[in-house]
Design a protein around this nucleic acid. Sequence first.
DNA 1: GACCTGACTCAAC
DNA 2: AGTTGAGCCAGGT
Length: 96
Amino acid sequence: MRSNFQKKVFNVVKKIPEGKVLSYKKVAELAGLPLSWRAVGNILNKNEDKRIPCHRVVRADRKIGGYNKGERIKTYLLKKEGIIFKNGKITSRFTK
DNA sequence: GACCTGACTCAAC
DNA sequence: AGTTGAGCCAGGT
C-alpha cells in the first residue's frame, strides 16, 4: 500500500547520498513525521525497493537493524560505500 | 485487532 | 568501560 507516509519516507531515503547513513528516526523527521520512525522501520524493512537505498538506514543505536534481503547484504553494501562496521555496529559519522 | 519494527531508559554483567 | 538484554512506548501494514 502506497500511503502518503510511505511516499514521504521513500522520497527522503532516495535522497541519501552514497556513503551517508541515517537513522530510521532521522528519516521520519525529514519525512515530516518525527513521531513515526517506528513505521519507517516497518516500511523500509518489508518493502524491497531497488531504487531506495534502504540499506543506508540503520538504527539510532548504530546497530544494523533489519533488511529484507538480509542483514549481511546490508552491511556489505554499506561497507562498499565507506561505512565501517564493527561487531555489527556502525563506526562512521551519520546523522543520528 | 494482531503482529512487526525501532527508539528510549534502566539494570546487570 | 563497553556490551547486552529486557521492558515500555508509538505507529504502520
